[in-house]
Write a protein that binds this DNA or RNA. Structure first.
Length: 286
DNA sequence: AAATGATCCAACCGCTGTACT
DNA sequence: AAGTACAGCGGTTGGATCATT
């Protein structure tokens, strides 16, 4: 290390005269792998490439090791369950690293790429504001679950008649209330769903919704793609009237929901009732 | 078979946070 | 308190590959 680097901070990672960029060759991979397996990184990635005889910067070596060379890294397609976990955690928490925690042997970079190339399009137009995310994270702590996923799974499984988790992708939509009424008072909040969160079904079919209200009350409704509700009933004292308003007036089925017609579609709304409707977030499972 | 456009994904960039001196 | 090294993150890039014409 030069005296400059020793006194003034990290070595530059962009010295093009010295540092090679771009894809790694098999020889470089072998060199890096053998060195790390023999010596470890020594707690110093910056000096590693020099010691290993590589014309790469330390950061590049670190990424190559973490994302590709280290043992037990999985590459390839994701299962439905993994898809669900990634979607949930990436959407709710906004963290790819947390997804890594649940999906052993999958790198954050791979999750990020998978999200960007496969899932992002699926959920385009759906946005979680920092405020909403903060509320959800707070609620997650309130429930004392290690993750939002656990909290969701727990709540879903607590519903009578649901004995296994659906193979699910999670859609998140924001609901806005046109009044500040409380479901607890018996008045039904009027809820509108803002496009393009709900999209038109390709063909008429019936989907079954289960809405998890803020007080774990349920509304189970069936609707047609034209928006009409053919059945509506509540479970519990405070069935969320807003849901029927939603289905009766505005509901248009999401393509992914429609694709799963016949199965139960779960709408989780556990992060606040009509009182907090402006910050509500619902998750639709199929 | 060749050209073109779309998609995928490894790698890079720039930034922030944290631990340490 | 300030500087340094490193980890980690989100965003982006560009080459490789695939699909379509």
């Amino acid at each position: 290390m030069s005296s400059f680097q020793k006194t003034m901070g990290r070595a530059p990672c962009s010295d093009k005269a010295i540092v090679k960029k771009g894809h790694w060759s098999p020889e470089e991979d072998k060199q890096l792998k053998e060195y790390i397996e023999k010596h470890g990184n020594g707690g110093n990635w910056i000096s590693l490439p020099r010691k290993a005889g590589l014309k790469r910067c330390g950061k590049s070596c670190r990424l190559r090791w973490l994302n590709y060379l280290r043992p037990n890294i999985k590459h390839g397609s994701f299962s439905d369950t993994e898809d669900m976990i990634i979607t949930n955690l990436y959407t709710i928490i906004g963290s790819r690293s947390l997804s890594c925690y649940y999906l052993n042997h999958v790198t954050d970079n791979e999750i990020k790429n998978y999200w960007n190339t496969n899932l992002k399009k699926k959920f385009s137009g759906i946005q979680i504001t920092p405020t909403k995310r903060r509320i959800m994270q707070q609620k997650q702590q309130d429930y004392s679950f290690p993750s939002s996923l656990d909290a969701l799974n727990h709540l879903i499984l607590s519903v009578p008649g649901i004995e296994s988790l659906p193979i699910a992708a999670c859609l998140v939509s924001s609901l806005t209330s046109t009044d500040s009424g409380s479901t607890g008072s018996g008045s039904a909040a009027t809820v509108t769903v803002e496009p393009p969160l709900l999209l038109q079904c390709a063909e008429e079919q019936t989907c079954n919704y289960v809405n998890f209200g803020a007080s774990c009350n349920l509304s189970c409704l069936s609707s047609h793609s034209d928006g009409s509700a053919s059945q509506s009933f509540g479970i519990g004292d405070e069935a969320w009237g807003g849901a029927s308003s939603l289905l009766g007036q505005k509901c248009e089925l999401m393509p992914v929901v429609a694709a799963a017609a016949g199965s139960i579609d779960l709408c989780f709304d556990g992060y606040g009732g009509a009182r907090e409707a402006a910050d509500q977030v619902s998750m639709y499972y199929y």
